[in-house]
Write a protein that binds this DNA or RNA. Structure first.
Lengths: 350, 350
DNA sequence: TAATTCTACGCAATCGTTCCCGATAACGTT
DNA sequence: AACGTTATCGGGAACGATTGCGTAGAATTA
């Protein structure tokens, strides 16, 4: 049994080492960093003592002096979302090996919260930012001002073209196109789309793909068939409302595509509560990174985003930007392919 | 379109304000904090200028000076787990309102990683730590040494009695007991248990509840019916192996209880792949915080941990510890009730 | 009027680290 | 013998903020 001491945690500093060894702090500092102008005996002495006392440089002092922190900030709407938690794992897998620590913060789809978080991260001297925008964010000046002052930022998933930098997205256009075509070929022609906030990049990209497929197969686009969840499905009620509104249309849809984890699960629950059956009453294709689509009843046809790879790609671009000596002028806009798995929820219409 | 400047981000300091206004930094500092020994005109001048220039105190400098950071560190095995992401949301909901920032780090069930993370958080001067142990952790000296030096720590979910501090857990004993009794009453008597690493507190508590129920109903405890996943189910293969080993037993179990999100989904997938049907071939009750247990086929009988509340309780105890002037000597060991929902996967045996 | 008390501010130390300047030897060179 | 080199180290400023202490000048009191 160990108990808590009221004294605040204190660790050994180079000053302590200098005092103990009768040398100056500058010498200790240089010895620790292996400077050529320190004799090998002194070096050995310092190194041994530091090792013995378990000396660790104070990262706070380093951050203050060097204005960097070997840490990168990640801003996502929420981690309780398969896509983002998987993306974060991708980010960490690279960052950890390159000596960067990852600080995660959640916007909870709130613009205000996003602003607070980005400013906090910046004031904490993160060396760079990885951002997926909140569904409320229309104005990017909180990022722009930092970016212009030299803070590297890479956007992923929910991006913006307002700031010229690297971006990493999934091929949302193609994914939505393929899903729509799949439904059409399986005999569905009243295909709805429950999606996120209207101005989000992912929403626009997916909507375009959806429209393109309809057009190609001569199905007129029906504005009523597109329902937006302004909180990205984070609020259950908005998904239920979207679904109910869809079912109220006289030309009731016979299929729908959901654009996100929360929207997918939310609408499936709502359908179940309404006593409807999938796909006989209505077919479903969902954008989701759930790892149990085949456990759902019926098994769910899904579009899975390459979350882990997107995280990896984004952090690689960011680190490249951070460690670049010259200003980066060539920006990459990576588009990663999604994974389409056909299951029962979209089987051919009877 | 805005582009990246190579100059490193620089913000306004107290020194800049002093220079601009022709006063000393101490006066600026005091004016900003509303000290009584600054004239109201000077105060007004400083406040206005600071506001105009959007001055924000540098938290790094403050951390260095004050040896605290208004941030608390959270160590969990992984965020891509419903329980932990929900718990983190509970933590954040309180921390945010009390002015603390939350830094999340993942151990990925690795002891080594846990040690690295805790030391990094400590050196970053977090004011306290919220910890759920990794499944590999047997030795707690990396926590104990910091705790003894005054760093407040609260353990939640996967706890240890090696360190005397506040703890927050779910009533795992009762949950496992109830689940087992439920299965027995529904006619199952060869009940297996697929659980996490054997020395984890949650494993022990659940196993005890399971055993107690068996004993109460006169069913002999069969060692073979308990399978451990040393990585907490994080590796799919270990769950499959556990299940396969279970099915190889001559007295094949007719039901099993899974002790965790990953183990639950992993074993259900494995069962599905084997072509077995639930609950006819084998019934299932799962510890899981999934929000779609009723979408699974068959709908899943679950034990849900009060993740959000556990996070809230833990952070409240931690903040209380941080802000306490005197050393805390009375420790609370909170036990929160779980939520048992009976569905089809454990319906009465035919 | 002289002594005292306030008022309102500046100086400098502090936190831990790095790094630009010197400084001081012991050498070798001329 | 005088000078330049080189090796090795220390002093001190800087990063941004807080704070104990000192003090000039004004206001008050005796």
């Amino acid at each position: 049994m160990r108990s808590l001491n009221i004294m605040k945690y204190e660790s050994i500093t180079i000053k302590d080492i200098g005092k103990a060894l009768g040398i100056s702090t500058s010498t200790v500092s240089r010895a620790l960093r292996g400077s050529y102008e320190i004799s090998s005996e002194t070096k050995k002495q310092v190194l041994e003592y530091a090792e013995k006392m378990n000396y660790r440089p104070n990262p706070i002092a380093l951050s203050l002096k060097e204005r960097k922190s070997s840490s990168i900030g990640v801003i996502v709407c929420e981690i309780a979302n398969n896509f983002f938690s998987q993306a974060i794992n991708g980010i960490e897998s690279i960052a950890y090996n390159k000596g960067y620590h990852v600080i995660i913060s959640q916007s909870h789809e709130s613009y205000e919260r996003e602003v607070v978080n980005v400013n906090h991260l910046a004031s904490r001297s993160v060396d760079g930012l990885l951002v997926s925008l909140s569904s409320e964010t229309k104005d990017l000046s909180h990022f722009a001002s930092l970016y212009e002052k030299g803070l590297p930022i890479v956007f992923f998933d929910r991006i913006s073209n307002e700031i010229l930098t690297h971006t990493v997205i999934a091929d949302n256009y193609k994914a939505a196109y393929d899903a729509t075509v799949h439904l059409i070929k399986n005999g569905y022609n009243k295909i709805a789309h429950i999606t996120s906030a209207p101005f989000l990049s992912i929403t626009i990209e997916r909507l375009e793909g959806y429209k393109a497929a309809l057009k190609e197969y001569g199905i007129p686009f029906n504005e009523q068939y597109v329902k937006y969840c302004s909180h990205g499905g984070m609020i259950v009620e908005e998904v239920e409302a979207a679904l109910n509104n869809l079912l109220k249309i006289k030309q009731k849809p016979d299929a729908f595509i959901t654009a996100g984890d929360r929207i997918t699960t939310g609408s499936l629950s709502a359908i179940k509560n309404l006593g409807l059956s999938v796909p006989d009453d209505i077919a479903v294709v969902g954008f989701t990174n759930s790892n149990i689509p085949e456990l759902i009843n019926p098994t769910l046809t899904t579009i899975r985003l390459p979350a882990f790879a997107m995280g990896q790609t984004a952090i690689e671009l960011l680190i490249q930007m951070i460690e670049s000596k010259r200003p980066v002028t060539e920006f990459q806009n990576k588009v990663l392919q999604t994974e389409f798995t056909i299951r029962e929820s979209s089987r051919p219409k009877l």
